[in-house]
């Protein structure tokens, strides 16, 4: 059974060339997949596009079929209140407990703002437990 709080993110390997991003976004919109959040990490000649959509498995299927190199990664999202220091509190909590954040980016839906975190996959369940015990609001879905 999937542990509540784990969210599937789709990562796509992209060459650094014109039209690459459109190819992906066109494919997603044609298949009625709504992008909840998007983040692009870039190196010198390639990038990794990370997207959160409502159906990650389906997104992987259509991207695979289109010839993209794709990977599903588990991440989690934490609701952050709109005041100074609220992000810092979460980051400090993780750092004090020896949990290394591989990367983070923002996510927003109608109701609230949130941050997406990627940690070592072996640590994700413990991290979620820790956050919940500390009263941090972990999103069950985005």
């Amino acid at each position: 059974m999937a542990i509540a709080g784990k969210i599937k993110q789709v990562s796509i390997f992209m060459e650094n060339k014109m039209g690459e991003l459109t190819d992906v976004t066109t494919l997603l919109s044609k298949n009625n997949l709504s992008i909840k959040s998007i983040n692009l990490a870039e190196a010198s000649d390639f990038g990794l596009l990370r997207v959160i959509v409502d159906d990650a498995a389906f997104a992987k299927e259509i991207l695979d079929a289109a010839g993209f190199s794709v990977k599903i990664t588990e991440i989690f999202a934490v609701a952050i209140e709109d005041h100074v220091g609220s992000f810092n509190e979460v980051v400090r909590l993780l750092s004090e407990n020896g949990i290394n954040i591989e990367y983070t980016y923002t996510l927003s839906n109608k109701e609230e703002g949130a941050f997406v975190f990627k940690v070592n996959p072996a640590m994700i369940s413990n991290t979620l437990q820790l956050l919940r015990n500390s009263g941090v609001k972990v999103l069950d879905r985005v």
Binding site: Q9, S11, I12, F13, A41, E42, A43, F46, G47, L48, R50, D64, S69, V70, K71, T73, E102, Y103, K118
Partner: peptide, 11 residues
């Protein structure tokens, strides 16, 4: 087909 990692430094 499956990119090894979604971590730029690992790739």
């Amino acid at each position: 087909d499956e990119v090894m990692s979604d971590n730029v430094s690992e790739v």
